[in-house]
Design a protein around this nucleic acid. Sequence first.
DNA 1: AATGAATGAGGATTCATTCAT
DNA 2: TATGAATGAATCCTCATTCAT
Lengths: 225, 225, 225, 225
Amino acid sequence: MTPARPLNGSTSRRRLPTQHRSRERVERILDVAADLITEHGVADLSTRAIATRADVPVASLYQYFADKEEIVLALVERDIGEMDEQVAQAVTALETLSVRTVVEATMRAFVAVYHHRPAFGVIWWHDRTNAAVMRFCRQHNKQVAKYLFEFATNAGLLRPDTDPIVAELGVEVGDRVFQVAFEQNLSGDKHVIDEGVELVVAYLERYATPAGIAGIPPGSRRVEE
Amino acid sequence: MTPARPLNGSTSRRRLPTQHRSRERVERILDVAADLITEHGVADLSTRAIATRADVPVASLYQYFADKEEIVLALVERDIGEMDEQVAQAVTALETLSVRTVVEATMRAFVAVYHHRPAFGVIWWHDRTNAAVMRFCRQHNKQVAKYLFEFATNAGLLRPDTDPIVAELGVEVGDRVFQVAFEQNLSGDKHVIDEGVELVVAYLERYATPAGIAGIPPGSRRVEE
Amino acid sequence: MTPARPLNGSTSRRRLPTQHRSRERVERILDVAADLITEHGVADLSTRAIATRADVPVASLYQYFADKEEIVLALVERDIGEMDEQVAQAVTALETLSVRTVVEATMRAFVAVYHHRPAFGVIWWHDRTNAAVMRFCRQHNKQVAKYLFEFATNAGLLRPDTDPIVAELGVEVGDRVFQVAFEQNLSGDKHVIDEGVELVVAYLERYATPAGIAGIPPGSRRVEE
Amino acid sequence: MTPARPLNGSTSRRRLPTQHRSRERVERILDVAADLITEHGVADLSTRAIATRADVPVASLYQYFADKEEIVLALVERDIGEMDEQVAQAVTALETLSVRTVVEATMRAFVAVYHHRPAFGVIWWHDRTNAAVMRFCRQHNKQVAKYLFEFATNAGLLRPDTDPIVAELGVEVGDRVFQVAFEQNLSGDKHVIDEGVELVVAYLERYATPAGIAGIPPGSRRVEE
DNA sequence: AATGAATGAGGATTCATTCAT
DNA sequence: TATGAATGAATCCTCATTCAT
């Protein structure tokens, strides 16, 4: 079975100054940025504010990041990494495999991260200003979709001829459900999320195999790869 | 049946200066703003840029709008009005009524507007910076959902006990589908949109009556209200 | 004895537009200006604010006043007229005449006006921005000083060779006492005012005749004029 | 006897940017601000004007001062420091101590500063727009009053039971005398100032001890503290 | 590697006044 | 006489970034 952290293969390959980061400081900067974003939104994030609160000279920010945009991007990258782990773990740990259980596990994992990394939601759902971030998140959604798609196909949950766009749409649409759920309720409206699971399941089951609907109990699974 | 423009009842009740607009100029300002937003995004929209391109002194902007935010809001209001008309018309014109036909008609109407009012998509999907706009759009989505929900319930397409959140989620999720579709293709990826229709239909049919699935031919409809 | 309103002989001799004022409106404008000044200070007084609150088009302000400055000036003129009346009345009504009784009567009269015309205090003490107003008030203080000086000299309270500057300084200094008194307490710190009377009396008595100190009872006065 | 600079104990404790001032530039900015204020008044002081004349980018102003208000405040602080020194020196240097000599020494010291720091007078007497400045100056007057009051009481010039408000009123009223004196004559009308001294002395002598009136020659003074 | 200082470019908004009607 | 509309000029201030040290 796939190892527990395959979704985001990208190791940081940023421009020069970023290479030799002084770990501690960089982490503090990201934490501060996350807080500020949660408090005031991405649009109001300023280098000065970060520097002041992180107790770092403004000019030093540019030792670790090429520009402001890169700070936000680094933040997103960090949080998304966490999300990847959660998803992979949750899916891996599943006993009975079915479209429903996979969707549910994935969405619960997302919820968990959104919940304790609020800045991520703020950036991703509300402040779509930063082009790099957008690209990155879109890209990530695609990766998640691809991962899940392959997983589900390999496991015999989806019919082999299913269009990959189906998975992508599922992920994107699930994302919007979260957006609605967290907008109404800071810790995620449970009722909305449950309905969202239903929604994604309803869609995907259109492309599911009978086993994908009925569920594959542990023990009787095809060996993958 | 409901008349052809019921979704947005709000008559413009802006602050004083906005009342006596010099129509022509205001329209030009909105057009320019729309262009600039399409080109650079809402976040980079500046009063100066609008004024310059619309060939209007910056100070005059404030004759027609209380502040920058209101310009964007007015723009959205204008476009959304158009959307409302399209939706109501499309649904009203339907011959056979079913969950599928209603969803399809609605989504096609949305697509039509997104297509020739690109600024609207940019604002609504990408730059979630403007609080007033956000509120307005959210509100609008709710209105659309409510309208469709009542329409479908009255027509006997949805089971009477269906939770209204279902319609809201359907609209929101459809919205995201458009976002994906227009992001990949400036005039809206047709394949994605088709899949999106499928997605929303799949979800809503879970709550549909048999007639809602099979379709109600013209002539045999219940008379509403 | 001098009639009850001699201090400010100036009849309004303003530029043309001011001549044909529509009384009612002008009064409302002045009242509104007074309120706004009391609330926000002269520096923050704006034509728009006046116009809005007085329910008069901004442009119409310029029918009655040449410019903003003139509005303030008219306001001051109006209030100062009231002050003159009060002073003349108070002094005229005096039974026993002495430096002390005259000073006291005058200062009490000032206090009365400052008390129910708060805008006047705000303009005169705090916002010394308006040149015309400054000139006007200075001028008025001189007139009051002159009036009192002549009154006191005629009544035999001050030695005939006394320098008129003495009276001017007395008035100015009394004015500052009020400023201090009203700054600490919106309705005028009584203790401070009492001390202020003492202060002015102490100074003026240096130039007083024995009768000016002892007091001239009613009946035994020299007939004036 | 008290050391020569006790009136204003406050060591500059401004917000961060002000800490590491580039001395020369800051001084130039203050000088320019002083000139502009002398020329056009505080109300018309603009950051742009300061920047232009000081040959400093507007943005740089904000390196040294938090905002415009702080520039004026710094200016006043600087001038007032000078005034404190002068007063303390003059009083300390006095040979014969009496109410009259102390008042005279103090007032002469004020005159000296007003004379070669004209901006100070303009700010303090004419443009009462800046709240921080007002607070500061009022506060300063109180400090001066307190200092002189204690000095005079300790020296046995005033009766021990004298109300401190007496000293405050003396200072305020003296201040107004200067205002009148400098308004009529840019270098301070000598006659008015002399009369002003007389005025303050007349008032304070009402609370003086016999020695405070007669004067205490050098050598026979009480040792203080 | 680290940073204090500097700044050009630009931000939104207000205001007193004018003028054509 | 009255006024709606228009506007030039100014306002204060912020920001991301650079650069000399």
